[in-house]
């Protein structure tokens, strides 16, 4: 994705190619340089630089007072982040894996998400909770989940799911500047890490200057007339690969990158479905009671007559398997996405 794809924004167009991780760190570093209230805290975010390279170099640049290695106690350091935010700082707190949310869900939901509302709007919690999601590298049932459906159901926080280096930087800057708590869910497979599956789109054009990529609007990252694929995060890349593969066969796939789940850009989804009549939701989170249901419901409550075909490719309702072959069988792989699209355009 390039800067010019976000209409209405005056963003620089001179870019370099950066990995997702480097783009994200650059965004954080530029905000830390601009605003002394921005701090980073979490497990191994300092000397180690983040296990998914989300904070590499920040300790050296900004020092241990602003880049804090915390104990392995999520409820403790997320609670500390909430306190710092209510006192006027802008903490970026890393939950190393989204899977660990359970040990700190009370802080996340009962406090971070609710304080603004329960204070009658008097207290703001301008905090970024950034967390790594997704599987594909045999990390088992408790380190491979996407879980954005869980966070998106809980009112009081924004939930963003960037897919490109451009958005990883720009949406991080937007999230830091946002006065609301923002859950920033980045997929390990879009960071450009050498030890993850090779993904050419994990390196992309990124402007050197600070810029905001808006939280809210979805992006039509590939226009097409036959089938709408609504997706987010790493699955955007897979969907684009499949769309390119299918183009010579005469199937014209439109790919919608949601970018943000709260708020959710329902208009872009509806406009695309109105055009194609065929909807495939591709979701690396569990199938039931999550994102794919919300997208289907969005169309069903607007006008079920828009839809001629509907299907979902998501993780079936089982924990993520450890074994590589089994894991690949449940993830929304290119093969499953392709079969899903072909099922929609068939007779």
């Amino acid at each position: 994705m390039t800067a010019t794809q976000h209409e209405g924004l005056s963003v620089p167009t001179a870019t370099r190619r950066l990995s997702g991780a480097k783009a994200m760190v650059e965004g954080i570093a530029q905000e830390m340089a601009r605003d002394p209230e921005v701090i980073v805290m979490g497990e191994d975010v300092g000397a180690y630089g983040g296990i998914f390279s989300s904070t590499t170099g920040l300790l050296e640049q900004f020092g241990a007072a602003r880049v804090l290695d915390t104990p392995i106690s999520e409820t403790g350091f997320i609670g500390a982040g909430i306190g710092a935010a209510t006192e006027g700082m802008r903490p970026i707190v890393e939950l190393m894996f989204a899977d660990f949310f359970g040990v700190c869900m009370d802080q996340i939901y009962n406090h971070m998400a609710k304080i603004h509302y329960e204070s009658g709007g008097a207290v703001r919690v301008p905090m970024v909770l950034m967390t790594a999601v997704g599987g594909g590298y045999s990390d088992g049932a408790q380190h491979s989940q996407s879980l954005w459906g869980t966070f998106a159901h809980l009112p009081g926080m924004k939930v963003v799911v960037p897919s490109s280096p451009y958005d990883l930087k720009g949406m991080m800057i937007s999230a830091i500047r946002d006065d609301n708590p923002v859950v920033f869910m980045f997929h390990k497979g879009i960071m450009g890490l050498p030890w993850m599956a090779k993904n050419p789109r994990a390196v992309g054009d990124v402007p050197p200057e600070p810029y905001e990529a808006p939280i809210g609007p979805a992006a039509v990252v590939r226009p097409g007339g036959d089938v709408t694929v609504v997706t987010c995060s790493l699955s955007v890349h897979h969907a684009l690969d499949v769309a390119e593969d299918l183009a010579p066969t005469g199937i014209d796939v439109e790919v919608v990158d949601l970018r943000s789940l709260v708020p959710l850009d329902r208009e872009t989804v509806l406009a695309s479905v109105a055009k194609t009549g065929r909807l495939l939701v591709v979701d690396e989170d569990y199938r039931s009671f999550g994102l794919s249901g919300e997208i289907a419901a969005t169309v069903a409550e607007h006008d079920p007559g828009l839809l001629r075909r509907f299907a979902r490719v998501a993780v079936p309702d089982v924990p993520i398997p450890y074994a590589h072959t089994l894991e690949q069988a449940v993830l929304p792989t290119r093969e499953r996405i392709r079969a899903g699209i072909e099922g929609l355009v068939g007779p």
Binding site: G149, G290, G293, E294, A296, V299, E301
Partner: peptide
């Protein structure tokens, strides 16, 4: 949003495509 009603709507959309007469 993202609740039980959404999943019901999805299941109904999947299974009742030709009997559904309203949103």
């Amino acid at each position: 949003s993202f609740g039980v009603g959404a999943e019901l709507a999805a299941r109904i959309t999947e299974a009742c495509f030709y009997s559904l007469e309203a949103p």
